[in-house]
């Protein structure tokens, strides 16, 4: 599905990613954990196509295409989805209008006809129910005045509408209480199938009780320093990141 090879990236001249290698296959769920400043969100941003980051080395193959050559919109149209850590408020653009434009531009890219009004409304109804998002929120301005939990649920609602092949959840658990966390995780689990893949970026193990990963990777100083099963997440929770640092021979 996606192959990240020796990925290096800078922001404002400072190297954040220092050679990331990661293979994710269809049907898999991967988690990336790591302390603050390890480069987790940078990885998500680089994959989604944020222009502030400069890729200095390496490549990313997504659906047999060179992902880094594509514009952010073409990455999304190819089936990449980023659930933002901080979803953006866009006053004056209604959620529904925004999603309809997105769905239709993705369909046009694939040579498909625009979605009919009736079909679209049914999609909105079904998929907002998936994350228990009040359908009234769907007609409001994008994220405007939404609570933290509503914003994160709105991200997963968008994911449900756009049906990506590869979704990156960037700290989707941050700022969520336990109920909201369960709702969001249930939504993600329901969207999971053998043809798509998910990359969960998180600081805490908590989310991984609900979205169970096949692989857990530890990112530290811009590199993946350890890979294991879901048990690795539990171990990290118990021992903290200092354990990794110690293992790497760093003084804590």
């Amino acid at each position: 599905m996606i192959s990240i090879q020796n990925l290096h990236a800078n922001i404002e001249g400072k190297e954040i990613l220092r050679g990331i290698n990661l293979e994710i296959k269809a049907g898999e769920v991967h988690a990336i954990m790591g302390p603050n400043g390890s480069g987790k969100s940078t990885l998500a941003s680089v994959l989604a196509g944020r222009e502030e980051y400069e890729v200095t080395e390496g490549k990313v193959i997504f659906n047999a295409k060179d992902l880094l050559e594509l514009s952010p919109e073409d990455r999304a149209r190819e089936g990449l989805f980023l659930a933002f850590q901080y979803p953006v408020e866009i006053p004056g653009v209604s959620n529904v209008n925004f999603l309809k434009t997105a769905v239709n531009e993705i369909r046009a890219y694939k040579g498909m006809q625009p979605v009919s009004a009736k079909e679209f409304l049914q999609m909105v109804k079904d998929r907002s129910a998936l994350v228990e998002l009040d359908s009234k929120l769907a007609s409001r301005s994008v994220n405007e005045g939404f609570s933290g939990g509503e914003k994160k649920r709105n991200e997963i609602f968008q994911m449900a509408m756009l049906e990506p092949k590869f979704a990156i959840l960037d700290e989707t658990d941050s700022g969520l209480d336990i109920d909201a966390l369960r709702i969001v995780a249930n939504g993600v689990n329901k969207l999971k199938n053998k043809d798509n893949a998910t990359l969960v970026i998180t600081h805490y193990q908590r989310l991984l009780d609900y979205i169970v990963p096949d692989f857990v990777h530890v990112l530290y100083k811009g590199k993946i320093v350890k890979t294991g099963s879901k048990d690795l997440a539990l171990e990290l929770e118990e021992k903290g990141y200092d354990w990794i640092k110690a293992e790497l021979g760093e003084t804590v």
Partner: peptide, 12 residues
């Protein structure tokens, strides 16, 4: 906001 919209597949 522009990046957010583009990241959802909406052209620039």
């Amino acid at each position: 906001a522009l990046f957010y919209l583009r990241a959802r597949g909406i052209g620039e």
